[in-house]
């Protein structure tokens, strides 16, 4: 089953306040991703991997082309979508696992991880058992659960973020170097979570700088090249 269809997508950043410099990052990129496969964006630094991943989440806007998301509820082109359609896709279909947690003051680890489930209207009992299971699995000690992650270490914050974005069984998961700055044991846990997501039929698109992890997870590579301006 097709989950993502990217056609002829281009992106150029225009820096108006730095002399109108134009930075082309993607030029007519096309590819598809099916349910149950893990596709890795691959290429040199600056080739637009991260920008492309953000476009698949509706966080960056494409200049042209189309990014069609095939959700269970229907198809949406992110390039033309209204913000409400993007929010709806993020609630049920698109998960994004990034390196950095945007900390909300005073919100506890537990509540942060539970929020995506409560937004979907999942029952409280089920939320509680899933949150506890996820926090234990990612080796976040119980003493941290009631605390806001603002004062946690980088690795702990990242694991809170992974727990939060992988607690929902999204049909599509976007992974931006999810294991950077994790120790070996936790890297294995995250790799196992990613494999389980693929096995249950999620379509995965990721950026992995770690060669071993990439080899372990990738079904297919999408090669991106730096765009040269002329």
């Amino acid at each position: 089953m097709r989950r993502i269809t990217v056609e002829q997508v281009s992106k150029t950043f225009v820096l108006h306040n730095q002399g109108g410099v134009r930075l082309p990052v993607l030029d007519q990129v096309s590819f598809q991703v099916d349910a149950g496969e893990c596709v890795v964006l691959y290429g040199p630094s600056g080739c637009g991997k991260s920008s492309l991943l953000k476009m698949l989440f509706g966080n960056y806007l494409a200049d042209g082309g189309s990014i069609r998301i095939h959700a269970d509820q229907g198809e949406t082109d992110l390039v033309a979508a209204h913000p409400h359609q993007v929010l709806e896709l993020r609630r049920h279909t698109l998960g994004f696992v990034s390196q950095f947690l945007r900390v909300i003051p005073r919100v506890s680890t537990w509540d942060l991880v539970a929020e995506p489930l409560s937004r979907q209207g999942v029952e409280a009992d089920e939320i509680n058992s899933r949150v506890e299971q996820m926090l234990r699995r990612l080796n976040l000690p119980e003493s941290l659960w009631s605390l806001a992650p603002a004062t946690f270490s980088g690795g702990e914050q990242q694991r809170v973020n992974i727990a939060r974005s992988m607690i929902v069984d999204y049909p599509i998961l976007l992974l931006d170097e999810p294991t950077a700055s994790l120790d070996a044991a936790n890297r294995d846990v995250v790799a196992a979570l990613i494999q389980e997501a693929r096995d249950r039929g999620a379509a995965l698109v990721g950026i992995f700088h770690d060669d071993a992890l990439r080899t372990r997870l990738a079904d297919r590579l999408i090669h991106l090249e730096a765009v040269s301006e002329f």
Binding site: V14, L15, H16, N17, K54, G58, N59, Y60, L61, P83, V86, L87
Partner: peptide, 21 residues
């Protein structure tokens, strides 16, 4: 105008880029 994180992370207008910067 747009989704909050899109406007703040990928601002297009010169003035919005200045605000975000």
């Amino acid at each position: 105008s747009g989704l909050t994180d899109q406007v703040l992370d990928d601002p297009h207008a010169a003035y919005t880029q200045q605000l975000v910067a």
